[in-house]
Structure formats: C-alpha cells, structure tokens
Design a binder for these strands. Sequence first.
DNA 1: CGAGTTTGACCTGCGC
DNA 2: GCGCAGGTCAAACTCG
Length: 614
Amino acid sequence: MEFGSQRSVKDEKRSDEFSVEDEEDRPDKDIVMQEPPLTTNERSTVEAGPNASSLTKKEEADELENAKAEMGKVMEENQRLKGCLNRILNDYRTLQMQLHNVVEHPQDIKDSSEKVSSDDHQETVNESDLVFLSLGRLPRNNEKANKVVSNKALKEEEEEDKEGLSLGLECKFETSKSGSTTEHLQNTQSPTNSVEEVPKEETGGESWPSGKGNKTTRDHTTVEDEVSQQNPAKKARVCVRARCDTPTLNDGCQWRKYGQKISKGNPCPRAYYRCTVAPSCPVRKQVQRCAQDMTILITTYEGTHNHPLPLSATAMASTTSAAASMLLSGSSTSHSGTRPSTTMATTSVADLHGMNFFLSDGSKSKQFYLSQPALSSSPSHPTITLDLTSNPPSSSSSSAPFVKFSSNPNYNPPRYPPNSTSLNFSSSESNATSWSNGFLTYNTTQPYNNNRNMNTNMNILSNINLGRLQQQQPMENIYSSYMQRNNINHVHAPSPQHSLPDTIAAATKVITADPNFQSALAAALSSMIGSGSNTQGNQQGGAENLMSQKMKWGELFPSSSALPTSSSKCSSSFLNKSSANSQPGSLMFLQPPVPLSSPKSASGSPGDHRDKKN
DNA sequence: CGAGTTTGACCTGCGC
DNA sequence: GCGCAGGTCAAACTCG
C-alpha cells in the first residue's frame, strides 16, 4: 500500500538522522548512548592494538579524553532528558488528577485547579491550557458534572474576555475565551450551549439530522433527543481524505453499512455506515471516493462514540474528535471577506502538498467558506477535513511543503477561506504521507482568538509546525503567525532569509504564548506521536513512550530533528497503530479501551469484510 | 442462523 | 408549493 511504501522510504531517509521514534522504541537507549560509537581514530587504535607505533601515548590520552568528554555530554543529555521526562510525567499525573477532580467533584474544580496551579509544574499549565480530549463518552452520570464545568468555563470566558477555545466534555480546549461571538453560539438556544454544544455532539448525545428517526425506534436516547432539540443543526463532521485502496478506512471501529446513495456530482456511490461497537452508538460515517481522484477515499465521521473504543480505534477517534472540537470552537466566530494575508493565502495550492486539516462549513450564516456540494456536507454541518493525501510529485513541493486549502472534501482547490481552521499534517515529501513525518500546522484564525481585532483585516493565523526543520519553510509559517499575532504587518509569507534562530524564537513564543496552540498541538501530537511507536503488539509502556516522545519533541523542537516516523499504510492503518500509545500518555483522556470481540468481523471495518468478498 | 450488505422506498430539509 | 438531493429505513439477500 502506498503509505507503507512511503514509510519505508522515509525510514531509509532518516536512517542516519536522529530519530525520536527509534529512541522511544528502546527505552533503555540511554544505556546504549552512553557508549558512543568509536571514532575512526579510536577504531584504528583498537585495531592496531598497543603495538601500533604510529600513535604516541599522548595521542591516545587525547583521544581518551575526547571520548570521555563526549560520553560526559551524552550522559548530561541523558540526565536532562530524564529530568524532562519526569517533569512531563508529573504534569501528566497532575492533569489526570485534575480531570479526576473535575469529573468526580465538579464543585471543587476551581479549588483543585488553584491548588494544582500552585504546583511548580503547573505554572504554565493552568486550567486554560489544558486539553481534555476524550473520545469515548463519559458516563452519563458524569455529564452533568461536566456540564457544570462547562458552565463555569463559559462564565470564565465571558468574564475574562480572553482568547481561547472552549469546548466541552469530550474534547475541551479548555481555555477562556471572549464571549465569542459565535454565531454558532448565538444560534443555539441554550445559553449553556456555547460549551456544551461540542460535548453534546461529541459525547454521542449528538443527534443526526434532526427529525429523522424520531418516528421509529432509533438509537437516540432521551438525552440525545434533548440534545438534538437544543442543537438542531451544526453537527460537526470530520472528513478524512486519504489515499486508500480498500473500500473503507480501517479505523479500528466496527461499522455496519446501512445505506448507499449516489450523490450528485460524484459518480461514486456514497456509503453510509454506523458504528456497531455499541448498539446505541450514534457515530456514523460516510464513505465515498473522490470524484477527481478515485484513489482518494473520503470518510466523513459524525458523532462521538458512546462506548469504550478498541485500541485500534482510539487514534482516529481522537483525531477526529480533536478536529471536530477545533472546528466547532473555531466556528464560533465568523467574519468574512478578509482573505488571510498569511503564508497560506499567499501560497499557491498547486505548490503545496501534504496532509491538511482544513475547515469548511456549508453554513452561509457562519460565513466560513463554503464547501462545494459535491460531497456536500449539509449546510448545517460544519466540516473539518483531515487531508491525508498528498499532491502528485509533479507539484513543486519542496519549496512549500505546507498548507493547501481545498474547498471541499473532494478537494477542488483553491479557495482560500477567509477563516480557516487547519491542522496541517503536511509531508515534507511530495508523495509521502506520514503523520509523524509531516509537519503539524495548527492554524488558528480569529475565530479562535476572538479578539478585539476582529474588525481589522488582519487575520491572525498562527501556525505551529513540527517537523523537519532542516527545511526552512515550516518555520516560516511560525514566523508568519508570530508576526501576525503581534500585529506586525506582514502581508506576504516571510522570506526565507529570516534567520533560523529568529523563526525558532518566534515559534517558541507562539507555542508558549497561546494555550490554544498547545491544546491543538497536544491533540494533534497525541495522534502523531502516538503513531510513532510502533507495532500493534507494542502496546505497553505507551504512556511513558508517548510522554517521552513528547518530551523529545519539546526538547528537539528548537533544533533540527525529525519527528518520529509512524508506520502508515493506509492512513488509517497508522492510526490503528498509533492508538495504543496515544491513549495513555497523551493529554487525551480516553476511556479505557475494551477489547472488543467480534465473532465475525474482527477487523472491524466493513471494508475488510468486503475485501474478503472481493 | 445470525450478522452484515444491498437496494428501492421513504422522509426531510432546502432552494427556487 | 414543488422538486431535488441527502439521509435513513427495512425487507430481501448474502455469507460464514
């Protein structure tokens, strides 16, 4: 499969470069590292033996000293990394406790958060910085508690008028934000919706197109009906575009096909699936081939699983959940007509490639750029697309490995949405589509920031790019966003002449300054990094692996590094693999996966089933 | 025989 | 109000 081959190519390429993944695969690597490879001289020394007359004792001593110094450096580095790991683990535990407190004792949230914030490690990780991303659904009895949290968050948002995201139960970019705007919010009846809307959808309380199914006994519970009443439209959808030969992405879940339809504008039929892992699971997905490129499989997810997810399904679920959350939070504000003067906007789509999240919204009222109706998400369905495809090699690529916008899942470029939320998992190679080898670009536009600059034409676009920094372009986005965030007029993409240190500094500032970035990063990284480990069999020690991977990344970010390479066959395969590790250590709080035994389709995907047939 | 798929009919929302 | 298109249902069918 394509991704598999891509992986192998990448593996070769990075064989001689520092690999976080490799290191993570070998927890005891520091031991290995303590014995640095022999230098040529050393080797010759060893080979020549003590009788070698060419080396004087002094030379030997020098070499010995050099080796010692080198070793010292390595050990020092090890210590530093260990310290970092410990710190991150502490953070993780603290966050976990915080979550626990939130879930168990919602009334204590503030207290606990204050308490925690007094902790050393919490100095920078305050409540507003947290990402609570849960894929499965919280138990119903917890929903209330979370609603309380959400309401609190909402109040805080209103009070603080601070930029940020506010999401709900399942995926919270729990930040304070200004009263934002959101037409989205305004459209909702319940004042609590601003925060609950996402959670409700994401918690599986989500309702499918209203009205439908109410007549017959459907899966919807009373709560869900409630939700659908409160939230008649605006079902967040996450569209995943991936090159895939199989009929469906194997995302780890069990799906049952319940319908098929030829949609207008696309000769390929669209198949409708619903999750059958749990009988009442509201999650559905649509699968359709891209009309322009039959190799591209467009999978649209809607809803959130209300049951524990199989390991193999958590990654995709987390990714889509995060994306949906971003979408919904991002959609909370709107303004149009201003084309972002950003790297994105100024970069020709044709020159770009890679994996992208892009946000689209069929809703005119929300004034996101409109999706084309080809695979039309219904107007009431804001859609975020995770583009795991790559442009053909012909597209010039290396010069601009990033960001491409497409107007719809069928990918008709370029539209340049005035507002866009985009997580970009671009690959640095034209036809390589690997999450962990790609760049992560988290763009937040004003909807997120929701700041007072809304009336300006200056779209704030913030990019965080992770990845191969030997290529300058990624940093340019960061730089650009930084400049923009600081209201520095910067109409065009920054020129490559900017010094790397500058861009690094800018990137660092961007990351540290904006909790939204951190949140989005955390979500995206959870998927990306989680995928970095390995094989499905290697599902243990995931937390530490992940955490240390994150740490590595954090450590390495300022310097040249390669992100861990994941194995990705079909884009979903990688997700399967990633899930095991993404779960425990990430900032996502997933419900404990339960091994699902399905007598029939262990693969869990109808596509697999069909594969057998075919 | 049970689970999953196929497929035509039906329902609903939206635009004109 | 009408027609269209998306989405869903459910009976029939297939498969293991």
